[in-house]
Nucleic acid binder design. Structure first.
Lengths: 373, 373
DNA sequence: TTGAAAGCGCTAACAA
DNA sequence: TTGTTAGCGCTTTCAA
């Protein structure tokens, strides 16, 4: 063993003051291995040009001492934490709403595994930040952040970008909010395709169940619907409701089917609309798909086994979550060219019974009363 | 402005070497405010006994400079990161499975908001850890960790506890795995209550759809079922399948209803079993609840609007997620007494049409008193 | 091939 | 009331 005595470490047995109790530090390993802390660092991180003997010896000693490098120290020194933020809108106490739930869960799941695969971990953070020292945002060292549907003047995004941290958004940013990159679907194209599909299945008057919120998804989808109506010369038939209220959807579905100009096909923009509409149809004695064609935007697999199975539009949250994280990590690691990157993920229309009318026979019948069968 | 010149900071305009570009550090704020860095730290953190004038002046300057304290440095110094790990079992590429999905999502959601409310953020981490420097676990400074259903000899848990970090588990630890605290349901009591409910509704032969895995939940629930059968003198009728395989459930449901000793009531242990069983019943021309009573363990709201609505057992993942995080943070902050803490969360049987053979009233009566109606 | 030394940016004793 | 100073544990030039 080479001259352990010449190193800067405790030749005495008393641990340095302030040292964390019980846990071995890099100095302890160096002392025990009879090398310098530099050598320990290099050996453990696969750097430097050490002989294999030294390397394995150091590793062995570190192992024996149960040495775990301090992530905080490494982060402070290198400026990289390996942590990626994922913002989550909170409504009252709960992060994200019932409506966004399946989408978000799938997206987060994909994002998590994509991040882990590249050696990063996801930190869940609220979409807004108070300007106080107790704010979580202040306490976490992030290499970059994924944001979901940032608003026009999102303060968190603005601040992060100002700090020089990359921000990638799920959903194209509205206004002139600067982001490093974004990923989104082509919502307009998706709606147009879907409406054409319903028309092909025999729909004469297609209704829309939409939201009162002004987020990009709702806005683009509704606009596309209105444009389509204009193009084919149909009067728009739609009902709006606050999508974050889990009860309001059922009421709105009912309202839509109770109208004198009742549609013979409906597209629901939000995940629970399928079951809501199905239940409403049942109340009015409408058979699906014979009397009413149904499509909703959803990521839930339950629509494969409802009675009847319901056609859904999937926004492919898994692909979005993966893409968002890849773009972010590329930006963190300086792998992309520097100009804003935009990525459009295709949607998928999963056609099931509810949007396929059997032999196109009956014309639209007159509205029935809620009780009638 | 008081003697700025006497401070140790750059009276020259050149930033210190190595300083992060563009971002103001505590020294810059101190210099600009004409105070020492200690005063800046104290002013910003509400510590020390500074006059309000100094405090607000410093805050103003910090604000003007866009000063953001370095989380890494603070963590290194204080030993607290404000970060809590949440482990997630990965199957292949994807974190958590379809089966656990709704439960996990709800639990994680509650855990996230509970953590945020106390100033902590959740970091999603894989349930296993390679022993390599590229392992995510090595790169994140955690104050403590929540683990879901740790196995008998969970290496990650063992290692964390050895490091002196608190670990709270969702699901009682099996074997003699040491954890700081755990939260769980009383799975046996829940199953017994549910079987009694089915028997009260007229079930003569209750079947079970269970898993082939050996996790605690599956094991305890199955054991409870077998014990109940023995007590009432019924032959057990059950089918097992690998619960993480999304397709296997439907097959097993079919198998169960195809048996010569076909049950007249079934309890499914996993979330998708409800729709699987409903579909299987339809295939065999069995009416629910007339010919077949159905209950499954699920957190999904879709069972409220299936045809017919299906009775579910909820494990209350929200309450579990909240409890787990509270216990963990209490442990981190040294608020609890030191001995192991165990917390049992009651389950909830949500009674719907599928398990009520008697007059279809919507009123939910106590499971044990069928005579009242 | 290895080691010494200089910090990363902050907080908290201890001085003044 | 405020400032000086000594590190937290690591990585990284630079020197030997």
């Amino acid at each position: 063993m080479t001259a352990a005595g010449k190193h800067q470490v405790s030749r005495t047995e008393t641990p340095r003051r302030g040292s964390r109790p019980g846990r071995a530090g890099i100095r302890d390993v160096a002392a025990a291995a009879g090398v310098s802390i530099t050598t320990v660092s290099d050996a453990l991180n696969g750097k430097g040009r050490l002989p294999d003997a030294t390397r394995s010896h150091v590793r062995e000693v570190a192992d024996r001492l149960g040495y775990r490098p301090s992530a905080a120290a490494r982060t402070l020194r290198t400026g990289k934490s390996g942590l990626i933020g994922l913002t989550v809108t909170t409504y009252g106490d709960e992060p994200f709403t019932f409506t966004e739930f399946a989408y978000f869960a799938e997206m987060a799941r994909a994002a998590t595994s994509a991040a882990l695969a590249r050696g990063y971990a996801l930190v869940i953070l609220p979409a807004s930040s108070r300007h106080s020292p107790f704010d979580v945002w202040q306490n976490v060292a992030l290499d970059g952040t994924v944001v979901i549907d940032p608003s026009d003047d999102d303060q968190v995004v603005t601040e992060l970008m100002r700090q020089g941290l990359p921000v990638v958004s799920d959903g194209r940013p509205s206004g002139d909010l600067p982001v490093t990159a974004w990923v989104d679907n082509d919502h307009e194209a998706a709606v147009l395709e879907l409406l054409d599909h319903l028309a092909d299945a025999g729909a004469r008057r297609i209704g829309l169940l939409t939201g009162t919120t002004t987020d990009t998804y709702t806005r683009l989808s509704t606009t596309a619907y209105l444009r389509w109506c204009e193009r084919v010369g149909q009067d728009p038939v739609y009902e709006s409701y606050p999508a974050h209220d889990p009860c309001a959807g059922a009421v709105a579905a009912d309202r839509l089917l109770a109208r004198p100009d009742r549609p013979d096909a409906v597209y629901g923009l939000f995940d629970p609309n399928g079951t809501d509409l199905l239940a409403a149809a049942r109340r009015y004695g409408l058979r699906v798909p014979e009397d009413l064609l149904l499509v909703c935007c959803s990521e839930s697999t339950v629509y494969a086994s409802t009675e009847p199975p319901i056609t859904t539009l999937s926004l492919k949250p898994r692909r979005i979550g993966t893409a968002v994280v890849q773009l972010l990590i590329d930006a963190i690691e300086g792998l992309n060219t520097g100009q804003p990157v935009e990525q459009v993920i295709p949607t998928e229309l999963i056609i099931r019974t509810s949007s396929q009318r059997r032999p196109p026979r009956t014309t639209v019948s007159a509205p029935r009363s809620p009780s009638g069968d």
